[in-house]
Each structure stands twice: as C-alpha cells, then as structure tokens.
C-alpha cells in the first residue's frame, strides 16, 4: 500500500540559485498528484527532493522536512529512501548494457534475492504490473535498448516497481513518447495508484486532468495552488493558476 508524504518548509538550491521556496504540502496515500507549472518553476526539483535525488547533483542542497507517514526521509540513509520512493525519469533510461530481464533483476539481486525462481517470478510480476509482460516475454534476454521508446519507459516503471516501493515519482514520464505510448503510460498510472502513492510531474495539462486526483501548481519555486484536479482546472482560486491553466502563459 502507498504511504502519505508530508512536506514542510522545503527549500532547495542549485549553487546560489534557489529553486524551491519553503514548500508545504500533504500528499495523500494512494492518490495520484500532478505537479504542473511552466519550465523552471521547480516542479522537477520538488519531486527530486522527495527521493533525495536532488542532493546527488554537485552543488545542490535543501532545507526543510519530508516525512513518509511518520518517518523523516532526511534522517534515513538516502539509499534506503530511494528503495521506498521509486522514480521514473523524463527519458527512458534502461541500463544500456543489460538485458530486459537483468534491468529489473539487477536491483533485486543486489538486495539479496538469489534464487532464480524467485527472481524470475518477481521480474514477471513487475513486467505484468507495467503492462509490458506480453510484449517482452519472449525477448527477456535481449538488450533493453532494442525495445521501443514506450516499451523502454514501461520497463523503467517495471524496474522501479520491482523493488516494491511505497511511492512512485514520475518526472514527465511521457514527454519523450508518442501519443499512443503516452496513453498506455497514463492508463498504467491510473491502475497503479490503488497500490502506490504517485507524484507525476507534467507540462501537459490534459495529462494532469486525465491521471491525477490532485494537482499542485508551481510558479517560480513557490507552490501557488494545490487542490482536487477538477477544482484547480475549473475553479482555480489564484489568478496565476487561472492564467496558467487557461494557457495565457507557460
């Protein structure tokens, strides 16, 4: 089951430049939250703070508190945080030297799963969850790079799901994909939210309305508005949100 995330006073910097300004937000368990906003508004930085990916960039730092249920993520070891809070990236990034199977099995092996039958079973389960099994079940030994872009992205989702996270962060997961592949990813997100808490960054507002229960609007590193997706898009409370969702800027 997914877990809720509560963020308090989250600020983030790249070098001297502040990209997030004291964000407070509560993300409920088992919901899909869309994070929207124009380029450079800090939406990617925001999700990258949730799995402590932000701090891996040289010169990046953050302040504030991020809690998963009662646990403070910034008091845990970052490696453990990333096992609980999985991530899917803007561009499909399967490990280019590994097969389809090994892309998923790698993290499982490294976390101590040794038995072949268990590995095979968990790889299959992850691929099924990512709606990819039927397409690749005869190609498990092939290089992951031979899959199509959309398949590679679903492989990355399967890879993230294999380690059984509670939260799945998706940073514009469909921005590099064609419309059909995009729809398949969106379908997948709707399926997955019963089991995971999902945070999806998107610059595509239709996508936000299609997949997200809740929507957060970021502008210049600030959280401007956060509410039910239908409310944010149909009855925005803030003028800037209205301007953005009506396409007046961005």
């Amino acid at each position: 089951m997914g877990k809720s995330i509560s963020v308090a006073g989250l600020s983030a910097w790249y070098g001297d430049q502040q990209t997030l300004q004291s964000i407070d937000i509560e993300l409920k368990a088992n919901t899909a939250t869309a994070v929207i906003g124009p380029s450079g508004c800090g939406k990617s930085t925001f999700v990258r703070c949730l799995n402590r990916m932000h701090e891996t960039v040289p010169g990046a730092r953050m302040e504030g508190r991020v809690r998963l249920e009662e646990e403070d993520l910034y008091r845990m070891h970052p490696v453990d945080v990333r096992r609980i809070v999985g991530m899917v990236f803007q561009k499909p990034n399967p490990f280019p030297t590994l097969s389809v199977f090994d892309n998923i099995a790698l993290a499982l092996r490294l976390s101590g799963v040794r038995r072949r039958s268990e590995l095979a079973e968990r790889v299959e389960r992850s691929l099924r969850m990512a709606a990819l099994w039927d397409e690749v079940k005869d190609r498990l030994r092939q290089p992951a790079t031979e899959l199509s872009g959309g398949q590679q992205q679903r492989l990355c989702i399967a890879r993230a799901l294999a380690v059984e996270p509670e939260v799945l962060l998706m940073d514009e997961p469909a921005s590099a994909l064609d419309p059909i592949s995009t729809l398949r990813i969106e379908e997948l997100i709707r399926d997955l939210k019963s089991r995971y808490t999902i945070v999806i960054v998107t610059h595509n507002m239709q996508q936000a309305t299609r997949v997200a229960d809740r929507t957060a609007f970021f502008l210049n590193g600030e959280l401007i508005e956060f509410g039910d997706t239908s409310q944010v898009f149909e009855h925005p409370r803030d003028r800037r949100t209205e301007d953005y969702v009506c396409g007046r800027f961005g």
Binding site: V79, N93, F95, C156, V163
Partner: peptide
Amino acid sequence: PRLYREGGIGLGLTSWEVLRHV
C-alpha cells in the same frame, strides 16, 4: 550520461553499485 547513473541511484543502488553495475 547522468541519466543512466540516476537510473541506478533512483533504484536505491549505492555509489559503488552504480559504478560497478551501471
């Protein structure tokens, strides 16, 4: 590419594991 390293980091691999396996 940083993207591949982040793929490994994002899965909860340690720095050494990312170096060794990615």
